[in-house]
């Protein structure tokens, strides 16, 4: 069974169809990269999968269950978590609180207004361990809004994986980072998504060909190629539509 599959998914904003029949399968444990030119609809795809926007037609299945009619929080509780291309954190909460919030639901606290947070040993230890993982321990009590860009991106990834989702969607996690920062972020991503299904949008071709088991190329809302890196690199269609344009 696939972790995630899209069946002829379409999405229109008003009269314009942005996603024009995308079919995609992601196997459990697979590292799957989506590439494509700006405006191809990669972020929109993530928005559809994660329930941020309703789809116009088609089907989306998570571990065999239909999720395309569900609100984002229900999809998240079923084990799918996403990050945002434009950093989306709780800027007036501390770094530690951001991570703790991201852990709450998965640790069964729901809407509890009777459990004092300071007494939840397991929860607080998990949050601190995450801080350590993200190398943010020294920034523990700083307001998230005051972090540097790279730190905020790390926090964004941390919040995405905190809940222990089995399917992780990362939208351009290294965009805007320097080379060293990118290397660091990629090492982090490998580490924290160990054993999980990863679907990632990425612009940096070095990163993509390094990491991906499968690459899907999206152009104008359609998949023009999908397969192992070598096959995609060799594909004429991709050369013409995308890679060629990049190199040329």
């Amino acid at each position: 069974m696939t972790s995630l599959s899209l069946r002829d998914v379409r999405k229109s904003f008003g009269p314009t169809e942005i996603i024009r029949g995308v079919t995609l399968d992601v196997a459990p444990g697979e590292r799957h990269c989506i590439i494509g030119p700006n405006g191809a609809g990669k972020t929109t795809c993530f928005n559809l999968i994660s329930g941020r926007f309703p789809i116009t037609s088609g089907e989306i299945l998570l571990n065999g269950h239909r999720i395309d009619q569900l609100p984002p929080h229900r999809i998240n509780r079923m084990g799918l978590s996403r990050s945002f291309q434009i950093t989306s954190i709780f800027h007036r909460l501390s770094v530690f609180e951001n991570l703790r919030c991201a852990l709450l639901w998965s640790m069964g606290y729901r809407y509890s207004f009777w459990s004092p947070l300071w007494r939840q040993k397991a929860l607080n230890e998990r949050a601190d361990a995450l801080l350590e993982d993200l190398n943010l321990t020294s920034r523990r009590d700083v307001l998230a809004g005051l972090l540097s860009y790279a730190e905020q991106r790390a926090l964004e990834i941390g919040m995405t994986i905190a809940g222990g989702a089995s399917v992780i969607l990362l939208d351009e996690p290294t965009a805007g980072m320097s080379n060293t920062e990118t290397d660091y972020a990629m090492a982090l991503i490998r580490r924290v998504t160990e054993g999980k299904t990863l679907l990632m949008v990425e612009h940096d071709m070095k990163v993509v060909f390094d990491l991906a088991d499968v690459i899907t190329v999206l152009v104008y809302g359609q998949v023009i190629a999908s397969g192992p890196p070598a096959a995609v690199r060799a594909s004429r269609a991709v050369q013409e539509a995308y890679l060629g344009a990049l190199e040329g």
């Binding site: 329930g51 609100p71 984002p72 978590s81 709780f90 995405t160």
Partner: peptide, 12 residues
Amino acid sequence: DNFERAQFIGYD
């Protein structure tokens, strides 16, 4: 702070 993000960590 960010009602949208709250949805993607499991909260309505």
